[in-house]
Design a protein around this nucleic acid. Structure first.
Length: 309
RNA sequence: AGGGGAAUGAUGCAAUGGCUAGCCUGGCGGUCUCCAAAACCGUUCAUCUGGGUUCGAAUCCCAGUUCCCCUG
């Protein structure tokens, strides 16, 4: 009998999570839930490195292609839907495998972080943004400091987060720092096997660059052109995705294609580094150097061994 | 070979006699509880070498070294 309720296959971008997840699912009768902020969007296949239908090898995948690029998506939506998926999968006697690189999302799901209704309101946020548009970030910080000095110093220089703290206060009357302090010491709500796949930095970076070149060959530019046709706007959540932003900027004449490609590579390297940072501080994770295994199947079989104890 | 120019961190620049040599990019580290593939923070590394002038030199002078351009 398994000693885990679910498995989490995490790690930086391009490390090979998808293949391992599929192999694991096949070996233990599982289903994959994607924890990825971009693969939820339809029409965004190449740039998000979305798993192809044939690569799924019959394994059911959840939270992929569930939204249009114009739709909003965030942790709260993810946590709700992923949690529901986990329960459904378990209910049908199947094994849930969370696969993805968005550490924040995984955290929200694993710890059951409470994103209650009424804690956010895009309209309020927008209003605050507009009201403070003329202010320097430092002035914004001073303003928040008056009632929530903890958040003000934590979000030093970070306009987006300062505004979020103000939004939260305006909506709930409570301080964001108080809520965070309260939510921080949660225990996991699932008995999970949390595995972070990694490989030496140089190898990972090389893979990232090769993958970006491949995306270009596969037609990333056309994919973005199609998104434009669908009415995509640069400030949409989906257009925060690496690759999409840069190609969009290129098409808008901000820089040439060559620059766009090297920007994508660079930003993706940085992203991978931040992902590693995130997982490093996550508790109770098992790090797995995938270069120690000959294939995704072998990595998966090692993980299966861990899960089944 | 002759003439001219340039040498500042891993990279591209700034400082033209005077704060502790500044900034960009990269590298590395970190933050994060509703835009997270986002947003933000920190840190590392340099005046080519040797003399000289000066209270004081990246900056001026001399020599050397390397590189670039022009002439042949």
């Amino acid at each position: 009998m398994r000693k885990k309720e679910l498995a989490i296959i995490a790690g930086p971008t391009a490390v090979g999570k998808s293949a391992v997840s599929v192999a694991l699912a096949k070996s233990c009768g599982g289903e994959v839930i994607s924890a990825d902020s971009m693969q939820v969007y339809r029409h965004m296949d190449i740039g998000s490195a979305k798993i192809k239908p044939e690569e799924m090898e019959g394994v059911p995948h959840h939270l992929i292609d569930i939204l249009d690029p114009a739709d909003d998506f965030n942790v709260s939506i993810f946590a709700d839907r992923a949690d529901r998926a986990v329960k459904e999968i378990a209910a049908r006697g199947s094994f849930p495998i969370i696969c993805g690189g968005t550490g924040f999302y995984i955290q929200a799901l694993l710890y059951g972080i409470d994103f209650a209704d009424g804690e956010t309101d895009p309209a309020i946020r927008k209003a605050i943004e507009e009201k403070t548009a003329g202010l320097e970030t430092g002035a914004l910080e001073e303003r928040l400091e008056k009632y929530d000095p903890v958040s003000a110093s934590l979000y030093h220089g970070n306009r987006k987060r300062l505004i979020r703290a103000m939004e939260y206060h305006e909506l709930t009357g409570e301080l964001l720092s108080e809520k965070n302090a309260r939510e921080r010491d949660r225990e996991p709500v699932y008995e999970a096997g949390y595995y972070v796949l990694y490989m030496p930095r140089e190898i990972l970076y090389r893979r990232i660059e090769e993958r970006v070149d491949l995306m270009m060959e596969e037609g990333l530019v056309d994919e973005v052109k199609n998104l434009i046709k669908l009415g995509i706007k640069r400030d949409m959540t989906s257009m925060q995705g690496l690759g999409y932003r840069q190609i969009l900027d290129h098409l808008n004449g901000v820089y040439d294609l060559e620059t766009a490609v090297s920007e994508i590579k660079k930003q993706t390297r940085h992203f991978a580094k931040r992902q590693m940072t995130w997982f490093r501080r996550e508790k109770n994770v098992k790090w797995i150097d995938v270069t120690g295994f000959a294939s995704p199947e072998e990595t998966a079989s090692y993980i299966a061994g861990e899960i089944n104890g």
